[in-house]
């Protein structure tokens, strides 16, 4: 009988152990190597912050008041293929101090990489998301203020502010001249054109690598397509689509390797 008193608890333990979820499999510690993408917003050579006046490339006063954009499918290139390290990130200048970068961080395996690629905006599946299904702090959440409620989909880039309509005028900037570039729609989803900004790099075991890029507002306004003041100041993409497309084409080319 004494054996029985020992046997029964053991039996219970065996049953319990076998009935619950599987034992966790052996956990392999993630590679601690990491990468930080720093994107420095600038107007020409000046660090850009919101609510501050700048003279743009054509000597017009400009004052950005809102600047947000999505980066998606951030991918590292290798000799043997590609490794996506971030599906989506929302970058915003709100609260950013002068000279401070927008950042995207990700854990990566140690190794040699031949470059990077990413897209501006959201792919069609991401763009068809329901923002109410995401946690508040998720980049695609309804709480981010990027969702178009009247035409379901996300704004890929939101750039708003004021600019003068005449060059070389004394400040302050005329707050009656409002510009508002909101790009979205699946047809305006573009890969960033990095060119020389996509450079090879190596990351050792446990190392933290920093990849620095500049984002120049001048290039977004005066890139391959000059959109400054000539095509109207407002686009919500379906309204003044040409302006949205031209701004997008400029924006994806506004990144360069940073030389801090």
């Amino acid at each position: 009988m004494r054996y029985l008193r020992l046997l029964v608890p053991m039996l219970v333990w065996v049953i319990m152990a076998s009935s619950c979820e599987k034992d966790p499999e052996l956990i392999i510690e993630p590679d601690p190597s990491s990468i930080t993408f720093n994107i420095y917003p600038k107007v020409g050579n000046q660090p850009m912050v919101l609510n501050q006046e700048y003279l743009d490339e054509d000597s017009y006063r400009i004052m950005p008041t809102l600047f947000r954009f999505y980066v998606s499918h951030l991918t590292l290139l290798t000799d043997s293929g590609e490794l996506e390290i971030k599906d989506v990130a929302l970058l915003s200048l709100e609260g950013l101090a002068s000279g401070e970068p927008l950042t995207i961080e990700a854990a990566i395996p140690a190794g040699n990489y031949t470059g990077v690629r990413f897209w501006i905006g959201l792919d069609s599946a991401q763009n068809a998301s329901d923002p109410a299904t995401y946690a508040q702090d998720h980049p695609l959440s309804a709480f981010q203020g990027t969702f178009w409620t009247w035409n379901s989909g996300y704004r890929f880039v939101m750039l708003e502010g004021y600019y003068d309509t005449l060059a070389n005028t004394p400040g302050p900037v005329a707050t009656t001249s409002f510009f508002n570039y909101h790009t979205g729609l699946n047809t305006l989803y573009r890969e960033a054109v990095l060119g020389a900004a996509s450079v090879p790099f190596s990351v050792g075991e446990g190392d933290s690598y920093t990849y620095n890029l500049d984002l120049d507002l001048n290039r977004a306004l005066y890139g391959s397509r000059d959109i400054s003041r000539n095509m109207g100041a407002i686009t919500h993409s379906t309204s003044n689509y040409q302006l949205a497309e031209d701004f997008t084409e400029n924006f994806i080319r506004a990144f360069s390797l940073s030389n801090p």
């Binding site: 029985l4 008193r5 029964v8 608890p9 039996l11 219970v12 009935s19 619950c20």
Partner: peptide, 20 residues
């Protein structure tokens, strides 16, 4: 007492199989 003890143990085991 032994029967009661065994019974409690078995009930516990049955309940435990419902975890998750």
């Amino acid at each position: 007492k032994t029967k009661v003890f065994i019974g409690i143990c078995l009930i516990t085991a049955l309940l435990a199989t419902g975890c998750g």
